[in-house]
Design a protein around this nucleic acid. Structure first.
Lengths: 201, 201
DNA sequence: GCGCCGATGTTAACAGTGCTCACGGCAGAT
DNA sequence: ATCTGCCGTGAGCACTGTTAACATCGGCGC
């Protein structure tokens, strides 16, 4: 009786999970602002106060959703690189990073918004770190002299690119040429790193 | 009688500006979520419905605040590069970019949040573009073969770095070593571009 | 089998919010 | 002096997060 059992009764069965899932579904339709505890409770079919048995408040619920988002993000990033030669992993992961951001814009925004507090939520913090781990590792491999710095630079570039695309800030980008743009930019960026490493900066 | 005149009367004088300024002040204290039209009206000393004479709604008010943020951002970026040799401008602007984000975290977040819609607000869109202009120009100068791509890559890197620092996502960063870290990373990034350009990628 | 009890749900209520609408007062143009 | 339009007021609606007191269920000790 652990996950989604006989939910037809006074007790729901697995309300906590149901709330998070419903919130994720709702995030696909509207932004994080439109996601409220009462609306969520209504959708799941419980009273407005029921969620408070499982979450300290709205923020706690949002943090649980964000943590789940980071877990899915981590899986996606890891899937993107498996089976590829080492010198192609970075570009592939950059594409996956951007793809996730654009396919789940509201979730991605929530994950990096101020509505969730990574300092005060260990679970969330751990999920976030894990998501970056594979990207950082691949980036660090490019530059054995200064792995940490190269990792941060790469991560910054990819994250920023995702953000700017999400904001539709880059001119002349349409859904069709977007993938190729990301591939081109990421390739160019990686080439820059390799050139710098090769010629000793 | 254009700005802040005799405000002691039935009519306020320059309520629109007063609301935006109060909102900016409030942003320094709490996040954008804590900023409400009623609270704002209360602080300024008008009735709850008064703001609706100047803004279509809460979102419009937030967009005006964000636009003002972009204008200040643009000034800061431009100030940062003036008087410097061309080959040092990029790093200086990167520092200014990050500094702005860290000094006004709530405003910066608002500027790039979904709460403001850059597509549907021409004023806001223009202010945003202007803010990036000088950074993009300086970046484009580095690579005459592919100026646009290099500009986007640089912009992505700087924006991502600011975001990650804002999120306290980068390990081992404290207020004292932060500036030097940004300078080092930005310098390294620029060196990468130059190496790639010099050796033809 | 029985009663208790903690976990989990419900109902009612409070304060606060965005937003709308009908109204009222001020100021400059006619 | 009157008219007109801008700008602020007040009341009210529907909604939200959150809390407190109460109800119900399932499992545990007896």
């Amino acid at each position: 009786m652990s996950t989604s059992d006989i939910q037809g009764g006074y007790h729901h069965g697995d309300l906590k999970r149901a709330l998070v899932e419903e919130a994720l579904a709702l995030l696909g339709e509207e932004g994080a602002d439109g996601i409220g505890l009462r609306q969520l409770a209504r959708r799941v079919g419980v009273s407005p106060a029921a969620p408070y048995r499982h979450f300290a408040g709205r923020q706690a619920l949002l943090e649980a959703v964000a943590a789940e988002g980071f877990r899915r993000f981590a899986v996606l990033m890891d899937t993107a690189r498996t089976g590829l030669p080492e010198d192609g992993q970075l570009v592939a992961m950059a594409q996956a990073y951007v793809q996730f951001a654009l396919e789940q814009p509201s979730l991605f925004r929530l994950m990096f918004s101020r509505q969730v507090d990574k300092q005060g939520n260990v679970d969330l913090q751990a999920a976030a770190r894990e998501a970056y781990a594979s990207l950082a590792t691949a980036a660090a491999r490019e530059d054995e002299a200064a792995p940490a710095e190269t990792a941060v630079i790469t991560w910054s570039f990819v994250h920023g690119l995702a953000m700017l695309l999400l904001d539709d800030q880059i001119l002349g980008v349409s859904p069709d040429n977007r993938d190729s743009l990301v591939r081109r930019l990421a390739g160019r960026f990686v080439a820059g790193i390799r050139a710098a490493v090769a010629h000793g900066v």
